[in-house]
Design a protein around this nucleic acid. Structure first.
Lengths: 137, 137
DNA sequence: CTGTATCCTAAGCGATACTG
DNA sequence: CAGTATCGCTTAGGATACAG
């Protein structure tokens, strides 16, 4: 085991590609592709603070459209990551929150977010160097 | 601190939305949006096994087109996650591998992949229940 | 072998208007 | 309040052909 192996850790995932006769059938891709859309992560993080009503979510994520909010919530509910509770009052009240499954996703997700936060300055610097030579001549 | 807080961990990320006058300027979104495309994760995992040449990557990820492989590699290089080494032989030989920055991404990324792998059966079951009622009538 | 260039389609997403 | 319906733009991404 090399130093790099130790750093990467022993939790290397199983093969994501050649194990599957149909490559699109990979269960990891199946799950992660849904998380890779524009809003899912943001909604999950918001709901991990506390359950929220629909309108509260539009305020917490100001640049999402109602259409995309509805769609994202439905996808997350379909995957069992969030629950949806309807209180049939007038006006109606609909709340959303993390399920235990959704909660179990937050540690790895927060770790990834923390990595992004920690390393964004370096990434921005590398990008500038990468793009610079062309821009600067 | 609740049990859930402990489970989620103390590394809850900073605000991803309202902290930014322009919501698209969030540095975390800036980094994560690039990782959310169809191929980046797969390429990173593949390269974390060992550095690879272009053609080896097309074999390791059989369902990627050369166009998308080139584009994904460029993006990852631009973000400083992978390096690119050209050996000007004939025919030319180009290798790719993880940079230290890219390597530092693998633990959180592998943790997320491991979560997806662990929970895919449950997610599939929930999906079936969610979709079932309509399909079954 | 390692790409580029071009064309094309499908999907993601936003804007807007409407509804119980 | 919490959505749905419709439209159209923009982008991601696949297929194919060509090139150094």
């Amino acid at each position: 085991m090399t130093m790099e192996d130790r750093f990467v850790g022993a939790d290397s995932p199983t093969d994501l590609t050649t194990s599957y006769s149909d490559h699109r059938a990979c269960p990891v891709r199946d799950v992660l592709d849904r998380l890779g859309d524009k809003w899912s992560t943001l909604i999950l993080v918001t709901l991990s603070q506390s359950p929220q009503r629909f309108n509260a979510l539009t305020r917490a994520v100001p640049d999402i459209s109602r259409r995309m909010l509805t769609e994202t919530l439905r996808h997350l509910e379909r995957d069992g990551l969030i629950w949806r509770k309807v209180t049939p009052s007038t006006p109606p009240m609909v709340s959303y929150g993390l399920t235990p499954l959704g909660t179990s996703l937050m540690p790895p997700l927060n770790a990834l977010i923390a990595w992004a936060e920690r390393n964004q300055p370096e990434i921005a610097a590398v990008r500038a160097r990468f793009d610079g030579p062309i821009a600067n001549g």
